[in-house]
Design a protein around this nucleic acid. Structure first.
Lengths: 117, 117
DNA sequence: ATCGTAGTTTGACAGGTCTCGTAGTACGAG
DNA sequence: CTCGTACTACGAGACCTGTCAAACTACGAT
């Protein structure tokens, strides 16, 4: 019986807004937090997926869960279940399609303000 | 006595951060509110200064004062006293210098999402 | 089957934000 | 000087947010 694939697809991304549903205010609000900005900046750096606990932000696990949900529900990131982990990736293409240049300028601005050592 | 000009210059802008002091998170937070986003979008449209009550946002006067202060303290707008009015203008150049492309993409995104009639 | 790892859920708390109405200030016009 | 206009200041209330700890679930490894 091929129930495993239909009932709960282990590789399907968690609930997220469609490209056309992404709201500007939600994205700006999601990016306006230092912890989330740092996460996004990190994600923009590496090309492939990263699990949730791989970020060196000084917050508790549950707080991290909260921030990842805000980012996902705003349409900034995508989360996919992979074993016991959640792999996160930026929705760069979707964001660029809806708000061209926004993500790039934010990430660039964040890097610049964290004055390169 | 020429006290009038030195003690309180009627044309000096109200307290605002210097260009180098503008923080990305503060700007994003300032833009993440529907009322303020609308104000900024309006200001981006007309080239010259606009007084505070010239915006058709559905909020009380005191609320408007609050929003203008948030925008000014974030470094998004400049306020200058002119008679009994406060003339507001976008700090487009300063923002472009510090976070290139940010303001443009936000304003463009806001206009686009308010689906053109 | 047992254990450890990764993450979620819940409840709680402190603090911030948006909103308003009312009262007050500053300025120009008459 | 008096009046109206434009805006600010000061609470106060409702709501939202970021944070944590503790208990829980889901999965893989042994």
């Amino acid at each position: 019986m091929g129930v495993t694939e239909t009932s709960h697809d282990a590789c399907a991304p968690l609930p997220e807004p469609a490209v056309g549903e992404i709201r500007l205010e939600a994205v700006l609000h999601a990016l306006a937090d230092p912890v989330r900005l740092r996460i996004v900046s990190s994600l923009a750096g590496c090309t492939d997926e990263v699990n949730c606990l791989a970020f060196d932000v000084p917050v508790a696990k549950s707080t991290l869960t909260h921030h990842f949900r805000v980012l996902r529900e705003a349409g900034v990131i995508r989360q996919v279940r992979r074993g016991t982990s959640r792999m996160n990736s930026l929705r760069s293409d979707d964001l660029a399609a809806r708000f061209p240049g926004l993500l790039d300028s934010v990430v660039a601005g964040h890097r610049a303000s964290r004055h390169p050592v």
